[in-house]
Amino acid sequence: MSDTPVGALLVNLGTPRGADYWSVRRYLREFLSDRRVVDLPPLMWRPLLETLVLTVRPLRSARAYRAVWNDERDEGPLKTITRAQAERLAARLSPQGVVVDFAMRYAGPSIGERLHSLCAQGCERIVVLPAYPQYAASTNASVADEAFRVLMTMRAQPALRIAAPFYDDPAYIDALATSARAALAALEFEPEVLVASFHGLPQAQIDRGDPYRRHCETTFELLRTALCLPPERMRLTFQSRFGRAQWTGPYTASLVRELADSGVKRIALLTPGFVADCLETMEEIGVELRHSFLAAGGEKFARLPCLNDSHDGISALESILRRELAGWLG
């Protein structure tokens, strides 16, 4: 066994460098130019992206980011939480010679910057952990693409592992269930329905073989079983549809309105596809969907937090990392 340290890099999606129009525009251009995210032919997509999407969408997104922005650190909540996760993981793993860091797939800190930093600290073996429980080419594969692009520029390459998705990992499911129970117990009301909302994907990507929906369904069923909820008390949905194409359904916004229309007055919503709260969970779910449900006749709405840097969340990530580090630790 080598005496050199082992690196562990936690990677999440990213956040703009500022909550202003131009910062958000630059971020969206990088994100939406990734062929793993939007796999339309460039000659079709680029003109639309530059003339329409990047003119209109940054205005709305910048307003949303300002509503959840961490003013003290001047950064998005996803970056704050991912840093905290890495720091807490480092406290647990550094005694065994593991150097833990974090990166963002888009904006900064970049995967390249952090991989070079780990190598400079003597790490000859590095595990990259995409912080996406359910595999999608637009997330997990994009992280792997970028990591290996960085390695292509290196003369002395580290040994690199890309951690497997953990959608059915017992430690992750247990952490979700424990967190959900605690959050539900703290509410001042008992929800009639618990909605588990995952980020959506274009149905065309699923049809081409992406396992994402199957992974989401597995996470959902394992969590529902752990919470001992019957099918009518816990519902699976997908959020964040973009454009006119068909996306994975049922859509979260549609179901929330349907529940209110059918007489359901109290609901809670959790997001098992996210290990850290971000714009999507805090603003889209916590603000927009709350307003939609209440406007349609609902009376009580609660958004349950992601695992973030909670004790149970960090324990789950530690368990997953130790599995991926097998054979590399003394």
Rank of each mutant, 00 (worst) to 15 (best):
G76F: 01
D71K: 15
A62H: 11
E75I: 00
E50S: 10
R60G: 08
E50T: 12
P42C: 06
V53L: 13
T80S: 07
R46P: 06
P47C: 05
I81L: 04
Y65A: 02
E72V: 04
K79N: 09
W69I: 13
P41N: 03
E50N: 10
R66L: 06
W69R: 09
V56R: 15
I81C: 04
D71E: 15
A67G: 08
P42R: 14
R57C: 02
W69C: 10
E75R: 02
A64Q: 06
E50V: 09
Q85S: 01
L43M: 06
P77R: 08
Y65H: 13
S61D: 10
M44R: 13
L40I: 08
L78I: 10
I81M: 10
P41R: 12
M44I: 15
R57N: 03
P41D: 06
L43I: 15
T82P: 01
M44T: 14
K79C: 02
L40V: 07
L52F: 14
P42G: 11
P47Y: 07
G76L: 04
D74R: 13
T51F: 00
A86V: 04
R73S: 03
W69F: 11
P42A: 11
R60I: 10
P47E: 07
P77Q: 03
M44D: 08
T80K: 02
W45P: 11
T80W: 01
T55Y: 05
D74Q: 05
V68W: 05
R66S: 14
K79M: 01
P58D: 02
E75T: 00
D71C: 12
V53D: 05
L59T: 14
G76R: 11
S61A: 15
T82S: 09
A62W: 13
L78G: 04
W69A: 06
R66N: 08
P41T: 09
N70G: 05
V68Q: 08
E72F: 02
T55P: 00
R73E: 09
L59Q: 10
L40Q: 14
R63F: 11
L52V: 15
W69G: 06
L49V: 14
R66Y: 11
P77M: 05
R66K: 13
T55F: 03
K79Y: 02
P58C: 08
E75P: 03
R73M: 10
V56D: 05
Y65E: 06
R73V: 03
E72A: 05
T55A: 09
V56C: 03
L52K: 13
T51K: 09
R83H: 12
V56T: 13
R66E: 12
R46E: 10
Y65G: 10
A84H: 06
L49F: 13
D71I: 15
T80A: 08
I81W: 07
W45T: 09
A64M: 07
P58R: 06
P58N: 01
P47H: 02
A62I: 09
T82F: 00
D74H: 05
V53R: 08
G76P: 04
R83T: 03
Y65P: 10
R73I: 03
V68I: 14
G76M: 04
T80N: 00
L54I: 13
L59Y: 14
A86K: 00
